[in-house]
């Protein structure tokens, strides 16, 4: 079967192109910074999408790996440990290193299943946060690490948020395409099988344990990559970003847009970062509204905005069909 470009895909691509063209022309400085952070968060959230959306495994570990990636980058490029790598190779090295680390941690933690696994990832977040926050030689303690060089791409230094935007949107698109390819490959289907019924998955020749570990590895690598970008973009890394509350925030981000939907994750990340800025005038009520919004969302559309869209589409299709049948009679 050849896949044709659906009108839906054309609309999505056009919207994306518009987004890329318009955003850096309208925004600058602080607001551009917010959008950029949303893009980097989207990369991390794509990792959660692979674990939770495809495989049904609720993990909080994203911030642990994001922090790992950020501190790794900071140590590689600031001469703190006498290492002074150029930024590009360090950036490319980060997901590779943390894929390895995530693989080993995944081998251990994924011996557990369901809620046990989720708890172990919460524990992991607490342990890594304690180290990030206290161990000065590697993580700078509560002061964090500053003076991180910005991305240097073959001599071109990305010093403004607006130039960063192009790099980030490019990377987000690449990650989104990879995630979409995974979804449509054997790995994606195997994860879906595990999500629905682990026993049935086993009888279909799926190595449930190893498949989960691979998903965890991918999620870890993506989170570390996002973290490495984040610390270069902000030129600073501090431990606050990597605590339990932010871990929960990432899960909410993924659920909001639609945890098993590639476009949904992107929209979710943008909303979580951008919406509070737009509603700044509400200031102190913002978080409160946010909390209510999350609950309403879970009550009325647990599959997120993407789920809502699918539902509306299905309803329209259904109605059209009825109409056609009515006309045929």
């Amino acid at each position: 079967m050849k896949r044709k470009f659906s009108p839906e895909a054309i609309v999505l691509v056009s919207l994306l192109v518009l987004f890329i063209i318009i955003t850096p022309r309208v925004l600058s400085g602080y607001s551009m910074n917010v959008v950029n952070i949303a893009l980097m968060f989207a990369i991390v959230a794509y990792g959660i999408s692979v674990m939770l959306g495809m495989g049904g495994q609720l993990t909080f570990a994203a911030v642990s790996f994001m922090g790992g990636g950020a501190y790794f980058m900071a140590n590689m490029c600031t001469d703190r440990l006498g290492i002074n790598m150029p930024t590009l190779p360090a950036l490319l090295l980060t997901p590779v290193v943390f894929a390895g680390i995530a693989f080993v941690i995944g081998l251990l933690l994924l011996k557990l299943s369901g809620t046990y696994f989720t708890f172990s990832t919460i524990a992991l977040v607490q342990v890594t946060y304690a180290f990030y926050n206290n161990y000065k030689p590697l993580f700078g303690g509560a002061d964090g690490i500053s003076g991180i060089p910005t991305l240097n791409l073959f001599g071109y230094k990305f010093t403004s948020y607006n130039t960063w935007f192009y790099v980030l949107i490019f990377l987000v698109i690449i990650v989104a395409v990879i995630v979409e390819l995974i979804r449509d490959s054997q790995l994606g289907r195997s994860l879906a099988a595990i999500r629905d019924n682990e026993t049935a998955a086993l009888t279909m020749g799926i190595n449930v344990y190893m498949t989960k570990v691979i998903a965890f590895t991918i999620a870890g690598a993506l989170a570390a990559f996002g973290g490495a970008l984040w610390c270069m973009h902000g030129r600073f890394v501090g431990s606050d970003m990597f605590n339990y509350l932010n871990a929960a925030q990432f899960i909410i981000m993924a659920m909001l847009g639609g945890v098993n939907n590639t476009v949904g994750i992107f929209v979710g990340a943008l909303l979580v970062k951008v919406l509070p800025e737009i509603l700044r005038s509400l200031q102190s009520y913002m978080q409160l509204i946010w909390g209510f919004f999350i609950i309403l969302l879970m009550v009325f559309m647990p599959t997120g905005l993407a789920g809502l869209y699918e539902q509306i589409k299905a309803n329209i299709k259904h109605k059209l069909q009825k109409k056609r049948e009515g006309a045929g009679q």
Partner: peptide, 16 residues
Amino acid sequence: SYPAATIIATMGASII
């Protein structure tokens, strides 16, 4: 229908 939904809702409650 999504088991994680109830858990996420309690996270929302935590914020509220």
